[in-house]
Each structure stands twice: as structure tokens, then as C-alpha cells.
Deep mutational scan, measured.
Amino acid sequence: DLSALRVEEVQNVINAMQKILECPICLELIKEPVSTKCDHIFCKFCMLKLLNQKKGPSQCPLCKNDITKRSLQESTRFSQLVEELLKIICAFQLDTGLEYANSYNFAKKENNSPEHLKDEVSIIQSMGYRNRAKRLLQSEPENPSLQETSLSVQLSNLGTVRTLRTKQRIQPQRTSVYIELGSDSSEDTVNKATYCSVGDQELLQITPQGTRDEISLDSAKKAACEFSETDVTNTEHHQPSNNDLNTTEKRAAERHPEKYQGSSVSNLHVEPCGTNTHASSLQHENSSLLLTKDRMNVEKAEF
């Protein structure tokens, strides 16, 4: 173990290094160091905050020279020094078990990766560091076993998940096959086929009936047209017969005018059967003409 005197000496050296690497504005270890034209180094955030307070150039807090945003430059070497100082402080805390008085939040800088452990060898070769390295080497064999167990647990979990997924996939297939086998029997399929065939026959029977009705309507229309044509021909046949009657009536009127007047009046009210309204109107006109002729003949006879 380190003596108290040596611990104090190391602590004083760390404090001196820390004062050199402090920012003059925030009085902390410089984060993202930036250098000016006057070779003074500050935190990048502190300098941008200072420049944004005034429009135009501002003055350096140490030498009062003008500073602009374009004049600022990043210093990589200074950032490396800060990183190495942080590593020294971490090693000091691990070796002594004491917390550094002016320690900052170094938890963000710590890294437990194997590459980081290899890099620590180049920091300080001390008894405390050696003991700590031995402890780490002793704890390393235990870690692979834990990793193997965790991997086995994960693989077993994956296997159970896969088996569950396969079961879920197989179950719908089985149910679907069961439904297909038990849903419709052979008799049901035959009945469905016969039902479809009967429906098709009914459709075939319905369509000819409609065509037959249309044919019957067409035949009825044709018969009505033929009947009207026969009526017209009958009226045409009746007209010459009426003319013959008129000639006979004229002759009778010349011989017996008194008797014919009474008979002509009675004939006005008689309509021949089986004739249309057109034929009756023609008869009325003929009878009126005959009456006028008879009157003329009677007057001539009187004179």
C-alpha cells in the first residue's frame, strides 16, 4: 500500500496539472479547448457565450486583445492532455480508494470495455495498479461463464418462442383441414349439385314461356288486323247491294208514291245487322237523297 506522504505528493502534482488545464472563465477543466490569436485557451462554450454578448469583436479576458469567431481554432494537443489527466485522476481514485477533492464528473469518461483496460497499462506502473489488474484478471474467467449461461438462457427462450410460433402455425392448418373434411358430406355435395341443376332447368323453362307469350301476342295482333281488313271488305261488298236497293226503291216510288213515303220513313230507323257505323252513315245519306228525289217527283206529278 501507498504511504500517506506519497499520496499527498501525487495529489499535489495532480492539482498543479489541473490548474494549468483549467479554463480562466469557468475555472474547470477545459472541455473542447479553443485557442485565440494571443495563444490563450478557453472552453469553446465559454468563448461563444462571451462573443454573443456583444456585437462585433470582444476582448480576451487575459490580455484584452480583440477576439472574433473566425480567429478561434481548435487545439487537439490540449484536448489530449486533458484526457490523460482524467485517466490519471481515475487511476488515483481506484488505487487509494479516496475521492479526489477537486474531482469532476468523471463517470462519463469511464469505460469498462476490454480495449480501455489494455490502455490503462500505459498509465502508471504502481503496486495498487498491479493489484487491481490481478483482481480484474481473476474476475475475467467468471465473466465468460456468466456470458455462457446468459447465452444458453437466451437460446432456450428463443427455442420456446420458436416452438410456440410453430404450434400457432400448425393449429390453424389443422382446424382448416378439419373444417374441410367435416363441413360438407358427400350427400350434401350431391344435393347441392341437384339443386343447381334444377335451378338451371327452371331458368331454361322460364325463358321459352316468355317467348311463347310474345308469339301469342303477335298472333293476336295479326288476327285483329285481319279482322279489321275483313270488316272493310264487308262494308265494300254491302255498298253495291245498297245501291241495288236504292234503284228498286226509286222504281217503286215512281209507281206508288204514297205507299213509299211511309216505308221510307220506317227504313230510316232500321239498321242492317253486321255493318259498322260507317255503313250506317252512308245509308242515312242515301235515304235522305231518296226522300228529296221522291218529293221532286211528287211535285212534278201535281203540276
Rank of each mutant, 00 (worst) to 15 (best):
L94I: 09
R165M: 13
E226S: 13
S241N: 02
N105S: 05
N112G: 11
Q138S: 11
R251I: 10
T36L: 03
R132V: 05
S79F: 00
L204C: 03
Q93W: 01
E22M: 01
F106V: 03
R130T: 10
Q18D: 04
H284I: 09
L27T: 02
A279I: 01
D213T: 10
S280T: 14
R135H: 08
E9T: 02
I179F: 15
T233H: 15
P33R: 01
M127H: 10
V161F: 04
E187V: 07
V7T: 08
R251F: 14
P114H: 04
I20H: 15
F78I: 15
E148C: 11
A91S: 05
S139N: 13
F227Q: 05
Q205S: 13
M127L: 13
E254H: 10
Q147H: 04
S58M: 09
T160W: 12
L48S: 14
C225I: 06
H256E: 05
G56C: 08
R130Y: 12
E74P: 08
R212A: 10
S113Y: 04
S75M: 15
L50S: 02
T230Q: 06
K54I: 04
L50F: 15
L29K: 01
S152R: 12
I89R: 02
L151M: 09
E84S: 11
T68N: 09
N157C: 04
G128V: 03
R255P: 14
S3Y: 04
Q59I: 08
S126V: 08
C63I: 00
L137P: 13
E32M: 05
Q125P: 09
L21I: 04
C63L: 00
E258I: 04
F227I: 15
K37L: 11
E9F: 00
E249G: 13
T36R: 00
C46G: 00
V7D: 01
A223V: 09
P272M: 12
D231I: 10
L29T: 06
S281L: 02
S150T: 10
K54Y: 11
Y260M: 12
S35C: 05
T233G: 11
K49M: 07
I124S: 10
E142T: 12
S156R: 03
S113M: 14
E202H: 14
N15G: 14
E32I: 02
V270Q: 15
S264V: 09
D39S: 08
Q11H: 14
T248H: 07
C63P: 00
K44P: 00
L21E: 00
P141R: 11
K69W: 08
C38Y: 00
